[in-house]
Design a protein around this nucleic acid. Structure first.
Length: 226
DNA sequence: GCGACAG
DNA sequence: ATCTTGTCGC
């Protein structure tokens, strides 16, 4: 693979990313979550897309896509590894979310083009990046300790937020993916967090992608309703 | 040259 | 990301 070419591609696509609210409804019908997991020493990529109701935030639909992994993990180039599987899962959905949470960075990226921005652009949907670790940008640790939230900054611009979503837990790194303003991104992540470190759309996407017990139980419960 | 480094 | 044992706090 040619990383220089991919870098140029990121820079070109990043210029199309919108970081103002564009089509984000005040009261969405559905909020989505997206996450990826791997199987068999990483030879298979498994992407999960979930749809949650609003404001109840209950799981109403999920779709999973499994495809061969064709790209290695390289920090800064995650979207090239994950987007193909995410698009495949997206195409299986019976309907689309009004707002989508993606596991990873949005514009908090060396070229302002993390996986949440890349996927948001591909499906032309408002997306928010919710990452568990920092990739790019700096924040004031004292302000985080004092307020529980601090801006995530680069020398050029505001990238998003570092937010301690739960006491005695490591903070989340929240940034706009596409068609969402930084303030709106933080507000929706906060509104969708219900007592756990991760917001519900991300928790469910992770549960499905990694086949957590919570998801297995949900499947069993639904099997009886059928 | 050295450290940092989403998932 | 994934694997895996023990430990800690609510």
């Amino acid at each position: 693979m040619d990383l220089a070419a991919l870098r140029a591609q990121q820079q070109q696509l990043a210029s199309q990313v919108i970081t103002e609210d564009c089509g984000v409804p005040a009261e969405p019908q559905l909020i989505g979550g997206a996450d990826v997991g791997f199987e068999q020493q990483g030879t298979v990529t498994r992407a999960a897309l979930v749809l949650l109701s609003w404001p109840g935030l209950t799981l109403v639909e999920y779709q999973v896509a499994r495809i061969p992994t064709e790209f290695p993990y390289i920090p800064g180039y995650l979207s090239f590894r994950e987007c193909p599987a995410l698009v495949a899962a997206w195409e299986k959905l019976s309907r689309q979310p009004d707002l989508l949470f993606v596991d990873g960075q949005g514009i908090a990226h060396p070229r302002q083009f993390g996986v949440a921005s890349h996927f948001g652009l591909l499906v032309d949907t408002p997306t928010i990046g919710v990452a568990k670790k920092r990739l790019y940008g700096t924040s004031d640790s004292e302000r985080l300790a004092h307020d529980g939230v601090a801006p995530l900054l680069s020398s050029e611009r505001s990238l998003g937020w570092v937010w301690r979503s739960k006491l005695r837990c490591l903070p989340l790194f929240i940034s706009p993916g596409h068609r969402v303003h930084p303030d709106t991104a933080l507000a929706w992540v906060q509104r969708c967090t219900r007592g756990y470190r991760l917001p519900e759309p991300t928790r469910w996407a992770d549960a499905v992608a990694s086949r957590r017990p919570a998801f297995i139980r949900w499947q069993e419960k639904m099997r009886q309703v059928e």
